[in-house]
Design a protein around this nucleic acid. Structure first.
Lengths: 229, 229
DNA sequence: CGTGAGGTTGATCGCTTTCAACGGAGGTGG
DNA sequence: CCACCTCCGTTGAAAGCGATCAACCTCACG
């Protein structure tokens, strides 16, 4: 059992309300990770859920022969480790990272006490599902260029949500991370970055910096279905 | 507002406990669909969530140019339509189907009253996430044979869960559905079914009936990562 | 500078797709 | 009852895209 000090006053109307911050702060700890440090591994007990405060992490799975598939990247504000009693994937820092750890049991029992928190958790799970469904279509049915375009567009939109620059931004992940996310090889990723650069769609002042020169073309290339939610 | 008659007695210990059956039955209706009937479409208001009683449905998305990606199949016991206020994918019956409709608002407000129900919903969402992560690795990193093997194995395991035959079972979906689920063409699916049959791994007494002749080989071919949860 | 990891580019290979023809099962009407 | 038709599935041949193998570049760091 975990000691908890719940205070549900004045929270629901706050747009920046993050319910898990209500969990007793002495259950929570901030951790710092360096680039490439693992946060947890597939099969580990999921004793903790983590809120990303700073930096980017990659969630990925490995096949027996070493093939790797990145399932998602986690950015500040995201929760990683949601799921069952054991983790179903590996999680590594791909930059310097700060996370806040929250004991899983304490989060779940807090959710029992506070329906708002429960609802918020449910919403986070379903929005993660919606994101994965988008990626799923991309992974299964898009060509290499379309995958790269979709990836860049998704990253831009993510940054936009945080009020950052949509036109010029950093790629926190390596070509290898991108390739393993898109189901391609690093060579194909590189070639298609070049292709987009040659077509005047983007610029690459450095290998980890993107400038979008033709957003409309990028959107066309990403072959989104009509719906915008 | 929906009238609700909640009865939380004697439920949690019941292994077959399905909390949404507690929602007032006059909010719920059983619907029958024929093969190929749509249940809902991308963009529709998600006024209802559906519990599959009988038959199989496919959840899929379409790209502007008609390319299709099946996101998941829904079997009896599954919930379809979980997510936001609008559906993010299409849902069609791929056989004769019976579903129970549950108003979304009534489900959500019931979850507010009953933490058990909320927790159950959260669990369903995270287990759906876990399933999608498996499929994600398959889609991104497995070869055509490996995809077919994984698919058959997944189907067998699903049937096993319902106490059905793991060795001989039906394929409720067409080659086209399978292809659009695995990110392949129908020709490639067909060729690899034949390949598995030639290798003595499976038998295909009819095009929609599978008999597993070498389960071990099938598991090997599916290239699962080591972990079994 | 020298070194090494990450990234780019080139040449070739091979798997999946594409295009095309055929086969078989189920349904309909003569 | 059978001829015909249509849809689904299978098989073959050829094309294309991304993977593989290999060389080279570039930049950060000692």
């Amino acid at each position: 059992m975990y000691a908890q000090t719940l205070d549900t006053a004045n929270t629901i109307t706050d747009p920046n309300y993050e319910p898990w911050t209500e969990i007793s702060s002495n259950d929570q700890h901030v951790h710092e990770l360096d680039m490439n440090d693992p946060l947890f591994c597939e099969g580990d007990d999921a004793s903790f859920i983590y809120e990303v405060l700073d930096g980017v992490l990659s969630n990925y799975r490995l096949l027996a022969d070493g093939r790797r598939q990145v399932i998602s990247f986690a950015y500040p504000g995201d929760l990683v480790g949601l799921g069952g009693e054991t983790h179903h994937y590996n999680c590594d820092a791909i930059s310097s990272v700060r996370v806040r750890s929250i004991p899983r049991t304490s989060l779940l029992s807090a959710a029992r006490e506070c329906p708002e928190l429960g609802h918020k958790l449910f919403q986070m799970a379903t929005s993660e599902l919606a994101d994965m469904q988008d990626s799923y279509v991309m992974l299964g049915r898009k060509s290499a260029v379309e995958k790269i375009a979709s990836f860049l567009l998704g990253l831009a939109r993510r940054y936009e949500k945080d009020g950052m620059d949509v036109i010029a931004f950093d790629l926190p992940m390596t070509r290898s991370d991108i390739a393993d996310f898109l189901g391609l090889t690093i060579e194909t990723v590189s070639r298609n970055f070049t292709k987009l650069r040659m077509a005047g769609v983007i610029d690459l002042p450095q290998s980890s910096k993107v400038v979008v020169r033709d957003m409309l073309k990028l959107e066309e290339l990403s072959e989104e279905d009509g719906s915008t939610f």
